[in-house]
């Protein structure tokens, strides 16, 4: 997994609540059997004026000029600022894959849906929860200043504005550790293989029906 230590970059707005994963990456692009290449279809139905198809070259498609990601001022953005309950809906990991592939490294919101939140950490994408009024303040600063950038320091658990204002955020120790070091979750769990086998032996005595093979 990609490491996350510090990120400083342009912020783009997604100024609505309850952004669902169907909106982040519509289902017609989930037919891919790869993990990469979803960036060009991020927010597809909002970004383009026509209906997108999988494996299509998007360079000639008509852009929705009113959608912020298409504004010149937000090109190259690496931080997405949005509203409550971001990532609700389906469990598709294609949503963080698409955000990552587009170039986002972090998403800031007052709250996230559970599965999206969890999936993001597996892909080096940092979801940051800040208070609702802080998010509102950041939106106002973002709209007022072209080229608005934020700096994120994971070790310090802090978001820093251009004026030097600092907002700290919470993160689970385990997730922080994995992100900082780009650690493979599976490798870590397999270090506990003996504990897993011991559990299985104990459980087979208590509830043998759970180990009946399906065939």
């Amino acid at each position: 997994m990609k490491r996350f230590t510090q990120v400083k970059g342009i912020v783009a707005p997604m100024d609505r609540a309850n952004v669902d994963t169907d909106m982040i990456i519509p289902k017609n692009f989930l037919k891919s059997i790869k993990r990469t290449g979803f960036g060009k279809n991020l927010f597809d139905e909002l970004r383009y004026l026509d209906e997108g198809q999988p494996d299509q070259d998007c360079s000639g498609r008509p852009l929705n000029k009113e959608f912020p990601l298409n504004f010149p001022r937000y090109q190259g953005a690496s931080i997405l600022l949005t509203r409550e309950n971001f990532g609700c809906g389906s469990s598709r990991e294609h949503a963080p894959w698409a955000l990552d592939d587009y170039g986002f490294r972090a998403v800031i919101a007052p709250s996230f849906a559970d599965i999206f939140f969890n999936n993001s950490f597996k892909n080096g994408l940092l979801p940051i929860v800040l208070e609702e009024n802080t998010v509102e303040q950041l939106f106002q600063e973002l709209y007022a200043n072209e080229g608005y950038e934020l700096a994120i320091d994971l070790q310090q658990q802090v978001v820093v504005t251009p004026s030097g204002e600092r907002f700290s955020f919470e993160i689970d120790e385990f997730r922080k550790h994995c992100l900082l070091h780009g650690l493979d979750d599976i490798g870590l769990t397999l270090q506990e293989a003996d504990a897993i086998r011991a559990y299985e032996e104990r459980r087979k005595q208590q509830a043998p029906w759970l180990f009946g093979a399906v065939k």
Partner: peptide, 30 residues
């Protein structure tokens, strides 16, 4: 799949996971 919670009707702990977790559960059963 996020609608895995359906199985909770049986008195089970059922929930949806992402693809990285699908791989994790296959590899570790946890």
């Amino acid at each position: 799949d996020s609608h895995t919670a359906t199985n909770g009707a049986l008195g089970a702990l059922a929930h949806g996971i992402g693809t990285s977790e699908v791989e994790h559960v296959m590899a570790t059963q946890c």
